[in-house]
Design a protein around this nucleic acid. Structure first.
Length: 280
DNA sequence: CTTGTGCCCTGACCGC
DNA sequence: TGCGGTCAGGGCACAA
């Protein structure tokens, strides 16, 4: 569900509310699939209880809860994951997998489809953790350059969109923003990633950053599940230019937006604005 | 190494 | 009101 802008929105929402809070009690749903990558349930509780939240970070689509002990609780929300900060003793919604109880509030991790995951990383092992070690650059970091993007893409024969969804090229793009970035850059998502000119790479680099920045400004995109807090939707959906607009007219050229299936996921693009569609 | 496919799940929605 | 089919913001294991 959530891509970089949604995770970043959640991080910004929670950071001031969680920082410094001590974890009094941890409750986990027994046998939860979300915990499959972490130490056991008992060890997780033992590690977290009594610790406190020092800061909230983000790496790609991963939310990082930095603890005062130096450990990290790392959360990936998968497709339908959500984090709700509720008053203590609020009734947990269905599909609540993890509850962190603070003095006056409780953080609940809810995830119906259970594609999300949670793991505990010992201090200093964050960068070497298998889930995080292969992530590409943060697209909104100043250090992320068009040159770097071009280099990563030049090695890929796959369609551009497939390369963008690969978190090793850039961290944080998902199905929505990969489509939107391709559109804004005027590039076909179906063309080979390695064939971009330097100018096209530059446009794509700018498009990625602008799309993500604007989406964060609007608190992300809610299609159905995503909430940045209980009941609160992101407003970027109405600004989408291609994603979910198959058959509707392109706002720029008026042609009908196409939808094709690419690597098992839908890709949306404007045949008029996004170059030739290569014949296969 | 690369690339594409199928699968892990639940639930919403649509047409019959 | 069912009931089956389709689809969904992700990522991993696997085969070729």
């Amino acid at each position: 569900m959530p891509e970089l802008p949604e995770v970043e929105t959640i991080r910004r929402r929670l950071a001031p509310r969680l920082t410094g809070k001590k974890i009094h009690r941890v409750r986990v749903r027994r046998g939860s699939r979300l915990l499959r990558d972490t130490v056991g349930e008992v060890a997780l509780k033992k590690a977290l209880e009594g610790d406190a939240i020092a800061a909230l970070g983000r790496r790609g689509k991963y939310l990082l809860l930095a603890l005062e002990s130096g450990n990290f609780l790392v959360v990936h929300l998968g497709m339908t994951g959500a984090l709700y900060l509720r008053p203590k003793n609020a009734k947990p919604p269905p599909h609540t997998h993890l509850r962190l109880e603070f003095e006056d509030a409780e953080l609940m991790l809810v995830d119906p489809r259970t594609f999300g995951r949670v793991f505990l990383v010992r201090g200093g092992e964050l960068d070497s953790h298998p889930a995080l070690s292969k992530l590409g650059p943060e697209p909104l970091d100043r250090s992320f350059t068009a040159r770097e993007l071009g280099l990563a893409l030049s090695r890929r024969k796959a369609p551009l969109k497939a390369a963008l969804l690969d978190q090793r090229a850039v961290a944080g793009l998902g199905n929505i923003y990969a489509d939107e970035a391709c559109y804004r850059a005027g590039l076909s998502p179906l063309g080979p990633a390695s064939r971009l000119s330097a100018g096209e790479v530059k446009k794509l680099h700018r498009a990625i950053r602008e799309t993500l920045t604007e989406a964060i400004k609007f608190k992300g995109t809610t299609i159905r599940d995503y909430r940045w807090d209980a009941g609160r939707s992101g407003d970027f959906a109405k600004r989408l230019l291609v994603y979910g607009r198959a058959g509707l007219t392109c706002r720029r050229c008026g042609k009908a937006i196409n939808r094709v299936v690419l690597q098992g996921r839908s890709a949306h693009f404007c045949p008029g604005c996004q170059g030739r569609v290569p014949k296969s």
